[in-house]
Amino acid sequence: MALTTTTYGYTKEHSGEARPVSADAAAADSGSLTFEIKHMDLFYGDHHALKDVSMDVRTHEITALIGPSGCGKSTFLKSLNRMNDLVENCRITGDIRFEGKDIFREVDLLALRTRVGMVFQQPTPFPKSIFENVAYGPRLQGISNKGQLSEIVEQSLRQAACWDEMKDRLNQSALGLSGGQQQRLCIARTLAARPSVILMDEPTSALDPISTQKIEDLALELKEKYTIIIVTHNMQQAKRISDKTAFFLLGELIEFDDTVKMFTDPSNPKTEEYITGRFG
């Protein structure tokens, strides 16, 4: 894996920087690995929620995580930016590397969450104006220049395909937007923090079909610059947008492969049963 080694070198050179590497810089090492997960186990108290999961996530690909409710796919996603740290009694063993670095020992927690953005199942705008919602991430990073913020806000809203409908109401509350608009605003807010990875936790499950399609189109566009990992209940969605699919069942990673292969010729009979709708 010559490519992987180059990634390590690249990341190490830039390590310790408070400022996140921009998406453009990250675009240079397409085909490399963003996440390497080896023998990961996760416990909620006594409950063994994830069992010996190993997976590589490639840069600039969309990786879909599918499986029935309670299979651990969301838990797995939330481990990647250490949101599980907020859960009491949650314990993780094994190795999770982001751009070659151990996320628990070698990467600062706040830096990790800046680089690995997250979009939640329910749209979660803050009770602030549209502008302030998007500007929140940059402000956290110490950017306070109004001109610079305006630029970032416009750029992020354009990227998330909401600039045209929101440019005239930037100072209005984000809570007045529709659910689909709120979710795209949340994506814009995530992009404004300049991440290189976007984690999406069932981002369309609370939305209507039209808004869902907009988010899916958006994901396909964003893949050019970002690495996307998406949890979805909807197998058609995984089939439509993802490059790789991971199938989880009862805390185990049953199969992980190219999406096309997985949906046409799954190697594991359980995968086949699930994607053909025999359970789940």
Binding site: N81, M83, L86, L110, A111, L112, R113, T114, G117, M118, F120, Q122, T124, F126, P127, Y136, G137, L140, Q141, C186, R189, T190, A193
Partner: peptide, 17 residues
């Protein structure tokens, strides 16, 4: 709502922020 906290942490905010 808990989502305010999660979204904020998800953007790399510290507790105080």
């Amino acid at each position: 709502p808990e989502s305010y906290r999660l979204s904020s942490y998800g953007l790399g905010a510290s507790k105080w922020q």
